[in-house]
């Protein structure tokens, strides 16, 4: 790790000011991704602003029946919060599918949103990577790309976003509150993470000096029919090859509202509202699920090592929709349907 200076921010405003005034500064929350990247010298901050003492460790009920989760609440605390478990079980389930108990005890809600890709070339400063070193090229295209994107990639970057939590938040349609030098603003979850395009160094739409304060979730009707299905090389403690978050509202066996978000397949949690809308009012059966999977993956493109993800994602989408509509979610401990 390279030397850096260390300060502890006492207020959100002070953290914003410190971050905005020093282009070499980064924020430290749980540190589970940042410290790791610093050891590889992928991240080389000149200054660390420790935000762990900021008053952002809260889970509050909102007057509309929704919930507001502070940026510093750990992944464990979110997943085991009784209100989250009963009203947003999809979120709890997705979090528990990720990382390990130790990492979830340290990792925070805000940190989970802004964590970086686990592309092995991004992690290896000896190789070209447009995300790490803009303009240097992409070693994953034409290289070892088993874990890489099949949707929304570009000629510059085929990395995927590694989060499980974010896939559930995409399906649920969260709102992210951020604070920056110009004050506070809301970002719709679908607008937070980016596709790589020709600027893969930008993972999200946070502006300079902005920090995540909280996420908000509206009340919903998805507490019964939902599932988070995660497929990976081993049953635990591994990133998703493909994951599917499904949230469904059913009426008389028909899909009233169906949401399907995919993880492990793109630079951001992948969701297509136009495709979802095509299936409103459709009878919830396997034929419909297969069509939905086909439509969602119609633009999918493999890069050699990851071709297998296309049929894998199709089957995962169908299985997740079956689980969700039958009200039998994936058990993240037993790795079977409940």
């Amino acid at each position: 790790m390279r030397p850096f200076s260390y300060t502890r921010a006492q207020t959100v405003q002070a953290a914003v000011q410190a971050l905005a005034s020093d282009p070499q500064a980064v924020l430290l929350a749980g540190g589970t991704n940042l410290i790791d990247l610093m050891k590889y010298e992928v991240e080389r901050p000149g200054a660390i602003i420790d935000i762990n003492r900021l008053p952002l460790n809260f889970i509050d009920d909102l007057p509309d029946g929704g919930i507001r989760i502070g940026a510093l609440v750990t992944n464990s605390s979110v997943a085991h919060d009784e209100r989250v478990r009963t009203r947003y079980p999809l979120l709890a389930s997705a979090i528990l599918a990720g990382a390990s108990p130790q990492l979830r005890n340290a990792a925070t809600t805000g940190g989970n949103l802004v964590q970086r890709t686990r592309c092995y070339y991004f992690y290896d400063p000896a190789t070209p990577c447009n995300k790490r070193q803009p303009g240097s090229g992409c070693a994953a295209i034409g290289g070892v790309n088993r874990i890489h994107a099949i949707l929304g990639a570009s000629d510059s970057c085929i990395a995927v976003h590694p989060s499980d939590m974010c896939v559930a938040l995409a399906a649920l349609g969260a709102t992210i509150e951020v604070e920056g030098p110009a004050g506070r603003r809301d970002i719709a979850f679908s607008d937070f993470h980016r596709l790589p395009g020709d600027r893969p160094e930008l993972d999200n739409t946070l502006q300079s000096g902005e920090l995540v304060v909280a996420i908000r979730l509206e009340p919903n009707h998805f507490a019964v029919h939902h599932t988070y299905l995660k497929l990976r090389d081993r049953l635990s403690y591994a990133f998703a090859l493909v994951s599917v978050a499904v949230a469904v509202e059913l009426s008389n066996d028909r899909l009233v509202d169906v949401r399907v978000a995919l993880g492990g397949v793109a630079h951001k949690p992948w969701r297509d509202r136009l495709v979802e809308a095509e299936f409103a009012g459709v009878v919830a059966d396997e034929e419909a699920f297969q069509k939905l999977a086909e439509r969602l993956l119609s633009g999918a493109k493999g890069h050699g090592g990851n071709h297998f993800k296309i049929p894998l994602a199709a089957k995962a989408i169908v299985r997740a929709l079956k689980q969700a509509t039958s009200g039998r979610l994936q058990d993240q401990a037993a790795k079977s349907v409940q």
């Binding site: 260390y6 430290l28 108990p101 130790q102 340290a106």
Partner: peptide, 8 residues
């Protein structure tokens, strides 16, 4: 329980 390697 926490991974000590990832804490400053």
């Amino acid at each position: 329980r926490i991974n000590a390697c990832l804490k400053l």
